[in-house]
Amino acid sequence: MKFRKFTLFDTANNALIVMISLLMLYPFVNVFVVSISSYSAYIENPLRIFPKDITFGAYAQITRHPVLWSSYLNTIIVTISGVALGIFLYIVTAYPLSKSFLKGRRIIMLAIVFTMLFNGGLIPNYYLMRELGLLNSLPALVLPMLLSGFNLILMKTFMENIPEELEEAARIDGASDPYILFRIVVPLSLPIIATLCLFTAVAYWNNFFNAIVYIRDVDKWPLMLFLREIIEGAKLISISGGGVENAAEAGNVQITAETLQYATLMIVTLPILCVYPFLQRFFVKGIMLGSVKG
């Protein structure tokens, strides 16, 4: 390791990053601070960054909610299976497509891009799920977003940049394609696999729309649907189809206080926030070339 001088460039760069970070930290701090303050403290100043009348009442209340824990479990199951199946699919599909000699490669890529732009819409997808007998089941939350064209293209592009020589050497030694893929290509693709793990995990964790369409029973709700119900459910109920507010009816529906909404937001987001720092170790510069040369 060489000693590098801490230059003016570094100072300016770091200072700028600190400033941007503070800006990005703000909403999170605000949400956290509101979640541990009293409701009247929130109304008094919704933008507060210092807590007032500190209380953990909102957390106590939300953790007592039975749906929170069942939806936690559902989301964990859905996320883990989605990531595991998805990453496997990305690897085996992207690898052949990264080979420029592959016959039919262009047409397959075009077909994949096509699926990114065209979709049948809500109703046919609902029919499909029903015909497959998947309505109101957790697989209905996993399958529709198993393979995203976007992620596939990212992985394919990364694999295209892996030097061909390594694979050739193994092939000369008589290695089969599966061996080459899982023993040589996959280890070299760890940065992109880590990235896609993060992307798919977050996509599954944050998705509520599939649940809105395919799930009926509350015991199969995912976490983000639970959050959405806490934040928006009562508000939507208090507005009728015509779009007017009927004040008597609105008063009849209990709207969740922001303190409780934000406490829920903190609770449902924390686990997924931890994924990134964990994956960061795979983002080390030069992994690939190091191993090529080694």
Binding site: V92, P96, I123, L128
Partner: peptide
């Protein structure tokens, strides 16, 4: 020589066919 490459593609393509292309007929709406 490249049979494995095509075998690798099968699950992904079946997935796209079932979950992306079949519902696409809904555009007739």
């Amino acid at each position: 020589r490249h049979r494995w490459l095509y075998i690798f593609l099968i699950p992904g393509l079946i997935y796209l066919l079932v979950f992306k292309y079949v519902p696409m007929f809904g555009v007739v709406i």
